[in-house]
C-alpha cells in the first residue's frame, strides 16, 4: 500500500459573503475530487497558484482538517480520525508559522519536542548532532527563538520537523528567507535523508530550484483539481512550449524578421528569438536566420522549470492545458 493514498478527496467550505444583514452563504469547493498516491521514498513537488487548494490538501493529509468527501490514508492511518497516532510518523513545517517556543532557547525547544514525541535520549542526540551539523545550528543553539534571524529560525523549524525521524515530511516553503548557501544545505539534507532512510517528502515551494533539484515527480493543482501528475520533463513539454534560440551575428542588426518566431531581446550583435514548438523547429529557424544574416554562434534555450512554474503560479494551469490529467 502506498504511503499516501488519496481517493477522490473533497473539501467544501461554507463562506459568508457580504456584510450586515444581507449576508449569503456560498459553498466553496477548495479541493474538488483529487486522486493520487505517493510511494514511500519519493520527493514530490506540489504546486499551483495561490488559493488553488494546496494547503487545504496538506491540512487534510496531516489531520488538521476533516475532508468533506473521499478517502485519505497516510502511513496506514486515516488522518482526521487517528490524528495523534499519525502525528508521530509525520513531520510538518508550515512556512511562516512558528512551531518553536518563542521565549525559549532553541535547544530547549528541541528538548521539549523530544519529550512530546517520546524520542529516546540516545536517538535524539544522534539526530540532533546530524541535523545540527547539516544545518550549522551550533552558533545559535542557546539563543532564544525570538532573537533568531528568519534564516536561522527556518533552519530551527526544519530541525524541529525532523528530530523524531518522521516517515514523511510535509514542507511548505522550506527555504524561504535562506541565503544561497543555506538553501543548498537544506536541499542536501533532504536528499540525504531521502537516500539513507527513505524519507518521503511532499513539498510546496515558490523556489523553482528547490523543485528542480529535489522533486522527481510533480503534482499541479488548480481550482481544486489535479491538473498534472508526472515528471519534470513532461511538465516542461506540456506547459513550457516556448523555446528560445540565441544567435550571435557577425554584426549588430535590427530585429530579424523570421517566420513563426519573434525576437524578444536584442543586445548588440546578439538576438533572442522565441518560438513555439508547434509552429517551427530549431533547425528550420537556424536556416532562416543564416539566410538573413551571417551567423557566428548560436545556442538553444529549453524552457526552464522556472518559466513553467511561474506561468502555472501566475496564470493558473487550466488556462493553457485544459483539465485533463495524466494519472
Amino acid at each position: 500500500m502506498a504511503l499516501v493514498d488519496v481517493q477522490d478527496l473533497r473539501k467544501e467550505f461554507v463562506v459568508r459573503r457580504g456584510s450586515g444583514l444581507r449576508r449569503e452563504r456560498v459553498v466553496v469547493r477548495a479541493v474538488d475530487g483529487i486522486t493520487f498516491a505517493i510511494e514511500s521514498g519519493s520527493i514530490v513537488g506540489y504546486i499551483g497558484p495561490n488559493g488553488a487548494g494546496k494547503s487545504t490538501t496538506v491540512k487534510m493529509l496531516t489531520g488538521i482538517l476533516v475532508p468533506s468527501g473521499g478517502r485519505v490514508s497516510v502511513a496506514g492511518f486515516v488522518p482526521s480520525k487517528q490524528r495523534t497516532k499519525l502525528a508521530a510518523r509525520i513531520g510538518v513545517m508550515f512556512g511562516q508559522r512558528v512551531q518553536l517556543w518563542w521565549d525559549l532557547p532553541l535547544i530547549e525547544s528541541f528538548e521539549l519536542l523530544r519529550h512530546i514525541y517520546r524520542v529516546p535520549a540516545e536517538r535524539f542526540r544522534q539526530n540532533l548532532d546530524m541535523l545540527g551539523a547539516a544545518l550549522e545550528l551550533g552558533p545559535f543553539l542557546r539563543t532564544p527563538v525570538r532573537q533568531l534571524s528568519l534564516g536561522q529560525r527556518i533552519r530551527g523549524e526544519l530541525t524541529a520537523a525532523m528530530l523524531h525521524e518522521p516517515d514523511i515530511l510535509f514542507l511548505d516553503e522550506p527555504t524561504i528567507g535562506l541565503d544561497v548557501v543555506a538553501r543548498q544545505r537544506v536541499r542536501e539534507l533532504l536528499l540525504r535523508a531521502n537516500r539513507e532512510r527513505g524519507l518521503t517528502v511532499l513539498l510546496t515551494s515558490h523556489d523553482l530550484v528547490d523543485i528542480e533539484r529535489l522533486c522527481s515527480r510533480i503534482l499541479v493543482i488548480d481550482h481544486g483539481h489535479l491538473v498534472y501528475d508526472g515528471g519534470l520533463e513532461t511538465l516542461k513539454e506540456r506547459y513550457g512550449t516556448e523555446r528560445v534560440l540565441v544567435v550571435d551575428l557577425e554584426e549588430p542588426r535590427p530585429p530579424l524578421d523570421v517566420e513563426g518566431a519573434r525576437v524578444i531581446k536584442v543586445d548588440g550583435p546578439r538576438q533572442w528569438i522565441a518560438f513555439e514548438r508547434e509552429r517551427t523547429n530549431a533547425a528550420r529557424l537556424t536556416a532562416q536566420v543564416a539566410a538573413l544574416a551571417p551567423l557566428r554562434d548560436l545556442t538553444l534555450q529549453e524552457p526552464d522549470i522556472e518559466d513553467v512554474v511561474r506561468r502555472i503560479y501566475a496564470e493558473g494551469a487550466t488556462g493553457s492545458a485544459g483539465r485533463s490529467s495524466t494519472a
Binding site: K59, T62, G63, I64, A87, I90, V92, I116
Partner: peptide, 9 residues
C-alpha cells in the same frame, strides 16, 4: 494547526 500535527492533546 501546528499543535494539531503533534502527538499530544
Amino acid at each position: 494547526d501546528l499543535l494539531l500535527v503533534r502527538p499530544r492533546g
